[in-house]
Each structure stands twice: as structure tokens, then as C-alpha cells.
């Protein structure tokens, strides 16, 4: 057990390194807060209640995706009876016009990088990039 101190020192170092972000945030006086997301101003309701959208929009989007691509069903009826065209760029982004301040801001906060935008086009971005 001659290397007891080496082991202990390494354990302490490991603990410090692993918890470093917590200490750093403490020292910098940062407080955990939600992401600063810009909601659409002209629309009041999304296709589903906000709580559901906040936690489960990805499930909805994946079910939309499967229906359009694999079953050729291009409309979706919300629980309140409204019929929507199933389209990420066309329907979602019609209201959420600012992808950067809505989608990206929250995804950045949550530390997720969904690959939707590798293929799907943000129409507003094209309009902006056009001379």
C-alpha cells in the first residue's frame, strides 16, 4: 500500500476535474436559467399545447416525418380538429419565422444538435442570402 497517497491524490484530482464546470459557474456567479427563446408574436397557439410541444415536439416531428415520407399522408389533424399540412419548412417555420432565435437558441441551450437542418431548408435564410 505504498502508493496509497498517489491513488488518493489522483482520486481528488479526478473529482475536481469532473466537477470543474460547477465550480466555474459558481465562481463566475452564473445562475441557471432557461433559454431566451423568441416566440412568434402574431400567432397564439401551436399545433399542440405548449407543454406538449416543449417536451415532445421531436416525437411529433418524427411521426410527421414517417407519415409524409413513408405513408404519403400529407395532412395532420390536431386534437382540436384543425387540419395542418405536414411540413417542417412550410408549416412550422411559417409561424416560427426566426429559426436562429427559436429552434437554435433552445437546442444550443440543451446541448443538442438535431440534424434536421442538414437537409431541410430555412426559407428565411434563403431570402436573406439572396442579393
Amino acid at each position: 500500500m505504498r502508493d496509497r497517497y498517489v491513488i488518493l491524490a489522483a482520486l481528488v484530482l479526478f473529482f475536481v476535474l469532473v466537477t470543474a464546470p460547477v465550480w466555474y459557474a459558481r465562481a463566475a456567479g452564473e445562475k441557471a436559467g432557461g433559454p431566451d427563446v423568441k416566440l412568434p408574436t402574431q400567432e397564439k397557439a401551436c399545433v399542440m399545447p405548449v407543454d406538449y410541444m416543449r417536451t415532445s415536439h421531436m416525437d411529433l416531428l418524427i411521426s410527421w416525418r414517417e407519415r409524409v415520407v413513408r405513408e404519403n399522408i400529407r395532412t395532420w389533424t390536431a386534437p382540436d380538429g384543425t387540419v395542418y399540412t405536414v411540413s417542417l419548412s412550410g408549416t412550422c417555420l411559417k409561424c416560427h419565422t426566426n429559426k436562429a432565435e427559436f429552434c437554435d437558441r433552445c437546442h444550443d441551450y440543451a446541448g443538442v444538435t438535431p440534424y434536421c437542418w442538414d437537409c431541410h431548408v430555412d426559407p428565411a435564410a434563403i431570402a436573406r442570402s439572396r442579393p
Binding site: 415532445s56 416525437d59 411529433l60 418524427i62 411521426s63 414517417e66 407519415r67 413513408r70 405513408e71 404519403n72 399522408i73 400529407r74 395532412t75 395532420w76 389533424t77 386534437p79
Partner: peptide
């Protein structure tokens, strides 16, 4: 496909709305 879609919708707690296939 019907089975697959049903399970997805069930998982989401949705009622399957009648849909008209557009071209098939």
C-alpha cells in the same frame, strides 16, 4: 405500414384522424 403508424400514434396518444391518400 398501417400497423407501424398505429403504434406511433398510440405512443403519442393521438386519435388517428381519417386521412385520404392523396395519390396512391
Amino acid at each position: 405500414l398501417a400497423l407501424a403508424s398505429k403504434s406511433t400514434l398510440d405512443a403519442l396518444g393521438f386519435e388517428a384522424a381519417p386521412q385520404e391518400p392523396t395519390s396512391a
